[in-house]
Design a protein around this nucleic acid. Structure first.
Lengths: 192, 192
DNA sequence: ATACAGATCAAGAAATTGTATTGATCTATG
DNA sequence: CATAGATCAATACAATTTCTTGATCTGTAT
């Protein structure tokens, strides 16, 4: 139940046995079924979720009610609305479950407490944020001002696993194009 | 957006224009899609939900993970786990959305405040509880110690609309029989 | 013992919903 | 005005949910 989290942390820092026990104790496991909402826009995002197993995605809805996919998340990743989490403002995002998932949840107080008690965990947090920031920059770079086909081929390079696990229309939304366009791009790619 | 609530209240009591405005202001509208949870067992039920539109149902899960349907709710009805709402204990029920729904939510403080300010609303509350109690008694009477066929025919009389709007296996669970048994009962009824 | 109501198990059929593709326009921009 | 991509509408295809059916088993009342 905690393997992925263990791996994720130990990829970046080292914890003693007791530290890891403290750490485990700070998380609350939660199972979620497909189509459930981890977060609904309007609610405050009170916890970070580490994905032990499964798949989720976050999106916002524009004025016309169109889904705008922000992020996908799979096992070994974190998902949350950081803005809402940090500011306590109601979120404008929805986070929805794509596949039956197992999550490890931690709220702000627990997280802060854990960072105090276990400095390596604080480091881990810092590294995560740095990585998230870099990934976001890269995403923006790869989404703006490219042709539909280029966006998609870069997406395939950056997130090869994603294509296999999420419906195409969500990928289209993630890349800022319509499902039809993506479908045509894919056809033209297989032909050539 | 508030028609059903207006009707429901005015079926039982009369409100002045200002009272009705106060009343409306105490509710928070919320839209929910199919399969979403209004309440999950383990959480405290902090609000009553009035159904303006749509359909929901509440159920508990027994040790073996079987759904046990407690109640269906359609437009013009209330749904909540009253026990948890009143005691602040974590609920053992789940409330799930069956059809795209529009709800009007009120929490305990708002409800109390409204009852204080608008005595007719307090009356409405009392009448609702009485009715709910009576309906529950009737349900128990019609569920215990009857044959599967009798349970189903009484169910049809008591809740004619329900049959049209909810999957059969949920009705079976509501009546305390297996889906297979209900299927056979229905067949034998149409034959005769 | 055995008859009967209903449960359980397993398999399919039927229906519904979600996802992907395609063609036919339409629109903005270089 | 040519092109990339959007929009609209129809359809095909896939996956999931829901319902039905047959076979067998269990407990209770006769």
């Amino acid at each position: 139940m905690y393997e992925q989290l263990y791996n994720s942390i130990h990829e970046h820092v080292t914890l003693s046995e007791e530290e890891w026990e403290l750490c485990k104790a700070s998380f609350i496991p939660k199972r979620m079924r497909k189509r459930q909402f981890l977060l609904q826009s309007g609610d405050v995002c009170r916890r970070l979720a580490f994905i032990e197993k499964g798949a989720l995605f976050s999106y916002s809805l524009d004025e016309n009610g169109n889904q705008n996919v922000i992020q996908f998340g799979f096992e070994g990743w974190w998902i949350a609305d950081l803005y809402s989490f940090l500011t306590d403002e109601p979120s404008e995002l929805n986070i929805e479950v794509l596949e039956e998932s197992e999550l490890l949840m931690i709220d702000r107080d627990q997280n802060n407490e854990l960072m105090e008690k276990v400095p390596a965990f604080a480091n881990y947090n810092r590294i995560l944020f740095q990585n998230a920031f870099v990934a976001l920059q890269r995403r923006i770079k790869n989404t703006i001002g490219l042709s539909a086909e280029e966006k998609y081929t870069r997406f395939l390079e950056d997130y090869p696993q994603t294509k296999e696990r999420v419906p195409q229309h969500l990928i289209a939304s993630f890349l800022g194009m319509t499902p039809e366009t993506l479908s045509r791009v894919r056809r033209s790619l297989t032909k050539s």
